[in-house]
Amino acid sequence: KELVLALYDYQEKSPREVTMKKGDILTLLNSTNKDWWKVEVADRQGFVPAAYVKKL
């Protein structure tokens, strides 16, 4: 499975999103959308801005 690194803190703004902290390592589930990537963090799945994460 592919992992991404959170480059910035992100606070979810809708139930479809997830909160992450800078430095978090997240499991990447889907990166087909260039703006929003689906990730899993702490047993929750949701979207984060693609610009806020980097593939490892």
Rank of each mutant, 00 (worst) to 15 (best):
I25Q: 05
R44Y: 05
S14R: 09
D43R: 08
Y8F: 13
W36I: 03
D43K: 09
E17D: 06
E2W: 12
T19C: 07
K1Q: 12
Q45M: 11
P49K: 04
L28N: 00
A51C: 11
E2H: 11
V48G: 01
W37Y: 07
A50I: 04
N33E: 12
E2K: 10
V18W: 05
V18A: 05
E2Y: 11
E12Y: 05
V4P: 00
T32F: 10
N33L: 09
K1E: 09
L7S: 02
Q11Y: 15
V41S: 15
V39C: 05
L29Q: 04
Y8I: 09
L26K: 00
V48P: 00
V48Y: 00
D24S: 08
A50E: 04
Y10M: 00
T19S: 15
K54G: 08
N30H: 08
F47R: 03
Y52K: 07
V4K: 00
E12G: 15
A50V: 06
K55Y: 09
S14Q: 08
L5V: 14
S14W: 07
M20G: 00
N30M: 09
D43H: 12
A50C: 07
A42H: 14
K13W: 04
A6V: 11
K21D: 04
G23M: 03
M20Q: 02
Y10R: 03
M20K: 01
S31N: 09
N30D: 15
V53C: 14
Y10S: 01
N30F: 07
Q11I: 15
W37M: 04
Y52P: 01
K22P: 04
V53D: 02
T19K: 04
D9N: 09
V39K: 00
V53L: 15
K38Y: 15
N30P: 03
Y52H: 06
K13M: 13
L28V: 06
E17G: 11
Y8W: 11
L26I: 08
R44A: 06
V53S: 01
M20D: 02
K38A: 09
E17K: 05
P49F: 03
L28P: 01
K38S: 08
L3N: 06
Q11M: 13
K22L: 06
L3D: 04
K38L: 15
Y10F: 08
L56E: 04
K21T: 10
M20A: 02
K38R: 11
D24A: 08
K22C: 07
T19W: 05
D35F: 15
D35H: 14
L28W: 01
L26M: 13
E17C: 07
A42N: 14
L3F: 15
E12N: 07
E2D: 13
K21L: 08
A51T: 13
A6Q: 02
T27R: 12
S14C: 09
E12A: 15
D35E: 14
L29W: 06
F47V: 07
E2Q: 13
V41Q: 15
R44K: 11
G46Q: 01
L7V: 07
K38H: 11
L5E: 13
T19M: 05
S31H: 08
A42Y: 14
L5Y: 11
Y8L: 10
K13C: 10
D24L: 05
R16A: 13
D43S: 12
L3P: 04
R44W: 04
A42R: 14
Y10P: 02
R16K: 13
A42P: 12
V41P: 01
Q11C: 10
N30V: 08
L7G: 02
P15K: 11
D9W: 04
K38C: 13
P49C: 04
I25E: 04
Q11H: 13
A50R: 13
E2V: 13
K21R: 12
L26E: 00
L29G: 01
Q11F: 15
V18N: 03
P15L: 09
Y10D: 01
P15H: 10
R16G: 14
G23R: 02
I25P: 01
R44S: 05
L26G: 09
L28M: 03
G23K: 02
L28E: 00
S14D: 13
D24Y: 05
N30G: 08
R44H: 07
L5D: 01
A50Q: 06
Y8G: 06
D35L: 14
Q45H: 10
A42F: 15
I25F: 06
D9F: 05
V4W: 07
P49R: 04
Q11D: 14
A50G: 05
K54T: 14
A51L: 12
S14P: 03
N33S: 11
V18C: 09
K38P: 01
P49M: 03
V48Q: 00
P15Y: 10
M20E: 01
V53F: 06
P49D: 02
T27V: 15
Y52Q: 05
I25R: 06
V4S: 02
Y10C: 02
S31L: 05
T27W: 13
P15Q: 10
N30Q: 11
